[in-house]
Design a protein around this nucleic acid. Sequence first.
DNA 1: GCAAGTCTTTAGAATGCTTCTAAGGTTCTT
DNA 2: AAGAACCTTAGAAGCATTCTAAAGACTTGC
Lengths: 135, 135
Amino acid sequence: MSDNSPDFTVSLRAAGLRPTRQRVALARVLFEGGHRHVTAESLHAEVKATRMPVSLATVYNALNQFRDAGLLREVVVAPGRSYFDTNIGHHHHFYVETDGELYDFPSADVVVAGLPAPPEGTRLSRVDVIVRVRR
Amino acid sequence: MSDNSPDFTVSLRAAGLRPTRQRVALARVLFEGGHRHVTAESLHAEVKATRMPVSLATVYNALNQFRDAGLLREVVVAPGRSYFDTNIGHHHHFYVETDGELYDFPSADVVVAGLPAPPEGTRLSRVDVIVRVRR
DNA sequence: GCAAGTCTTTAGAATGCTTCTAAGGTTCTT
DNA sequence: AAGAACCTTAGAAGCATTCTAAAGACTTGC
């Protein structure tokens, strides 16, 4: 590596994933800029635009693997509408129902207090807060 | 009406829906007992068990209409997994990811404070809190 | 560096959930 | 009761996602 771009080969390997051409190309698009909200379709279109041949099935596979590895977070906002969020820190979402847009907001100032204890025999996985708005 | 069962004919009409045989049968199953979480499939099975012929398409139509009329609330917990909740009061949900179960909990004691203002030009529609747990 | 082994990608088929179509039935209005 | 409006239906279609099995790419051991 002679440039200063992040070495996705290393991070993929650290996540237990072989750094294949497609996975590296996908990681670049996903993690090279700021935080992103992508769908499988939108990511597929973006990566193909970089002239790297990738099938839609591979995009789905990679998104699921990245999510399972903790590199992405999945946000389901409506039936058949699921986003992958590159921001894995604590934060919540605005979802604009009228046009399907999703925006992050930091959880810093948001207080979710008074949650009851989880049902017997379960442990907390995550608390999702989706603030739904309309135009 | 000679018995003491709620008159769904009236409530359907109040919601702007013709009280057809199928809609009345669906309303009965949905609203006659305590609060329910149903899927289209589970409701279809239940209504057919009452010997009222109803197609799956009609169940989908009715669920969407009931939701649009404010009689039901839709909760999307995972891609391709959507519940309809007969509890339309303020409350939130536990979702047991490992077995797909959904439980209500009242919002009475839960405080969600410090939410940022909605994006320009939008108005608040609803705040969904889903507490995800695993076994 | 090469061969063998393992994992990955792929196109296309398949799945699962939901909506659409258009034909026939039901409910409402007068 | 007749006409108009609306609803239900089976089956087809649609959309997002996953599966299949065959070909290709990465890795390991030599």
